[in-house]
Amino acid sequence: MKQLLVSPSPHVHGEANTRKLMRDVVIALLPAVAVSIYFFGFSAIKMLVVALVSCLLVEWLIQKFLLKGECTICDWSATVTAVLLMLNLPPAAPWWIMVIGAVVAIGIAKMTFGGLGQNLFNPALVGRVFLLVSFPVIMTTWTTPEGWFGASVDAVSGATPLAFVKEALKNGATVQEIFEANPGLSWSQLLFARVGSAGEISAIALLIGFVYLLARKVIRPHITLSIWISVFVFAGILWLANPARFVDPVFQLLTGGMLLGSIFMATDYVTSPMTPKGQIIFGCGIGILTVLIRTFGAYPEGISFAILIMNAVVPLINMYVKPKRFGRK
């Protein structure tokens, strides 16, 4: 008779595995990728290919020659980082920027810590912020979305709504004046298409991805919703206090990397807290920091920094915030 298997219970396993989860994240990002290709055409495709190739290559090389472990590029996690990185950069940026971003994101932010699951900071965000502080001009030169293959690398550059408003406010204009002078800043416009990085173009596409992630139970809504609510409340208080100096909370929610960050970057498993309570604290921290940086800081956009700062707090949150135990009311 052949040998029977013997192991401790449980003897069966659920459907979920790391690969499927990561693949679901990629699928959830597809609408945003499709929109960016629609608006930026060839340059978006080029950026995507460069991001994928460089991220996967860096991961494979490090895993093979430095860590000498099993090949991990099939677990889709590097693919997630690549797609996020692509969506986080201006579509018209030169291709080598993407390669540098990939090396920093995968090589420094992920693999130096030991690979998937070990990193303290979200790799794609580290890549983006590294590029933002190293190449500020390239990273803030945006092309206006124009239509299928309408925009090419040398198209006219525009400012993101956030940068535009910030600049105008600095020059003494009131919020009402800015919005009256620029109908492009209306909500409907913001929902569908605006200036920004490849992934910030369409709020609708990102929201579709969010719904997909929730439906597939890849993420729970705690982090994302607490970011939105805290941004809304905090920005709302400022707005109520002085509507001439501070923009309204809906504008805060719909602009910049808010949706991309809150749906896809802050919810990154590895760098977010483990308990629902901790996740809410984490989300609120991100929301408040983002509004602070946006309104009082030097940069027009602050969600990247806010997420990275909160990433650093995660171990502390995990240590002190415990789940609701059974039998301890």
Binding site: G115, R220, M274, T275
Partner: peptide
């Protein structure tokens, strides 16, 4: 059983534990 890989800190075990443990 399939080969074990790195913990990705997805917190699914925390969500699944009926005793509220980690």
């Amino acid at each position: 059983r399939k080969p074990e890989s790195n913990c990705i800190r997805c917190a699914k075990c925390v969500a699944a534990c009926p005793m509220g443990l980690e």
